[in-house]
């Protein structure tokens, strides 16, 4: 018996980041802006997207707008989005708790590689942890949290809060009923993420959706400044 040692030396994390950069160049080549929506289950990602589509469709024709939805099972989200007449693909990850670059690549094949699209919305699997480790190259990552999830949502998920480009606090119309201090949520989010616009929204009443639409137009956002220093001692 012999033993052969094969050196591989491949960094899987770096690989993910490379994949994300590759996806970004596909988006740019197709000439579309890509917005990724992330957040826990039931935070209202799909509802916020639906309301956002109402604004987008005043500017774009339905065939210029694409939607890729990730869920562990069912095509319920894509069916909701389909009502707006936009091009849509549902990905069922079959248990995987986040979308990965190869999912997007496959979905793009069903969208003619993005040809003719001006905007593509990617709705990640409802999960506040794992998706943040798998960048998809989007021009903006939008974190959707809602007041019913608990006031301490942001402090409990510092990474997600930190890497988001836009933070939406959804269902603010329910804050009085829930006895939630929205101010405190905003303060927590701001502490972890000094730059992202924080939008108080309600997909039900439509509050904040125009603001979100305007904020998305500013994407892609410049990388974090290199010289910024936080000294904690």
């Amino acid at each position: 018996m012999n033993i052969v040692i094969t050196s591989i030396g491949k960094d899987l994390i770096e690989e993910n980041e490379r994949e994300a950069r590759r996806l970004r160049s596909i988006y740019d080549e197709a000439g579309m802006k890509v917005y990724e929506f992330l957040g826990g289950p039931g935070s209202g990602k799909t509802s916020v997207i639906e309301r956002l589509l109402e604004f987008m469709l005043q500017e774009y024709r339905p065939e210029e707008v694409g939607y890729i939805g990730g869920d562990v099972a069912t095509s319920l989200d894509a069916e909701r989005i389909a009502r707006y007449g936009v091009r849509h693909v549902q990905i069922n990850t079959g248990g995987i708790c986040h979308l990965e670059a190869h999912h997007i690549e496959t979905a793009l094949m069903f969208l003619d590689k993005g040809k003719g699209l001006k905007v593509l919305i990617i709705e990640n699997v409802g999960n506040l942890i794992c998706p943040f480790n798998f960048p998809l190259g989007a021009h903006a990552r939008v974190l959707v949290a809602d007041v019913t999830e608990g006031e301490d949502k942001f402090v409990k998920h510092p990474l997600s809060t930190r890497v988001s480009d836009i933070i939406v606090i959804n269902k603010v119309d329910l804050a009085p009923v829930m006895g939630v201090n929205v101010e405190r949520m905003v303060k927590d989010a701001r502490k972890l993420n000094p730059k992202a616009p924080i939008i108080l929204a309600s997909a039900r009443t439509g509050k904040g959706i125009r603001e979100l639409y305007e904020a998305l137009k500013a994407a892609p956002f410049p990388e974090e400044e290199e010289e910024e220093v936080i000294v904690l001692r």
Binding site: I8, I13, E14
Partner: peptide, 10 residues
């Protein structure tokens, strides 16, 4: 990083 360094194959 998370690096797969090498594999030993019999």
């Amino acid at each position: 990083g998370v690096v797969l360094l090498d594999v030993e194959i019999e």
